[in-house]
């Protein structure tokens, strides 16, 4: 498992691995939104939590098809499936590697973008916390979507169509944490629900992911 995690991390940071692309995309969203809605500070502050969560969602989505497609093409997935490690653990490890290379940088970088979007200072810490708790679910769900569509040529659009509806609960609770946090309200309920969804997704989806990979390898 550790070997797989290290390999995926190494692949991500080496040339052509796509590390940083998601981050750059996140930055571009945060720059384009004020250009679209106008520089008005109050408007930006109101929509900032939603925009930042949407940006994180889409940035995550961008890199999903890389999670399994490359291993599928070069035959690594065949070998991982025949190797003496459970495919469920492979699925979970791949999701973890994706989160470490995509989700975690977003978490660390988001407060800066929060400032750009005029998010209330009280909300910045909540933004980082909500992303920290919520983005693992995005990676786990995304890995599941990637497993469903791995055998399909040009499956990227289909992947988005399948994955985005599954992101709804995470988006709702994640943005609610930030909105409430920025307004100085209590965030305990949405934060607990956000954590529950991440825990649920991490507990059940690796099994569904492994099942989908097995079906696609058949």
């Amino acid at each position: 498992m550790r070997a797989l995690l290290l390999r995926d991390l190494r692949l991500a940071v080496r040339a052509g691995g796509g590390f940083g692309l998601a981050l750059a995309f996140f930055l571009i969203v945060a720059v384009l939104v004020p250009l679209g809605v106008g520089p008005g500070g109050t408007t930006l502050a109101v929509i900032a939590p939603g925009i930042l969560w949407l940006g994180a969602l889409l940035a995550c989505l961008l890199s999903l098809d890389r999670i399994l497609a490359l291993d599928w093409e070069d035959g690594s997935l065949d070998l991982l499936a025949t190797a003496p490690i459970p495919l469920e653990a492979v699925a979970a490890t791949k999701a973890l590697a994706h989160w470490l290379t995509t989700g975690l940088p977003l978490v660390l970088f988001a407060p800066v973008l929060g400032v750009l979007l005029n998010l209330a200072p009280a909300g910045l810490a909540w933004l980082a916390l909500a992303l920290l708790v919520g983005t693992p679910a995005l990676s786990v769900i995304g890995t599941f979507g990637a497993a469903l569509t791995v055998g399909i040529r040009r499956g990227g659009l289909l992947l988005s169509l399948i994955v985005l509806p599954l992101y709804v609960p995470t988006l709702v609770f994640g943005a609610a944490v930030v909105t409430r946090g920025a307004a100085g309200l209590t965030t305990a309920t949405p934060l607990a629900l956000l954590a529950a969804i991440t825990a649920l997704a991490a507990a059940i989806l690796p099994f569904a992911t492994a099942a989908a990979i097995r079906v696609n390898l058949r």
């Binding site: 709702v172 629900l193 059940i204």
Partner: peptide, 25 residues
């Protein structure tokens, strides 16, 4: 059939979660 069935199962769970999320929202 296999893939859509798995999606239907997972989708059902998330559809229910979405319902609650939207209610909360």
């Amino acid at each position: 059939a296999d893939l859509t069935s798995v999606l239907c199962l997972v989708g059902s769970v998330f559809a229910v979660l979405s319902r609650y999320a939207v209610n909360f929202w």
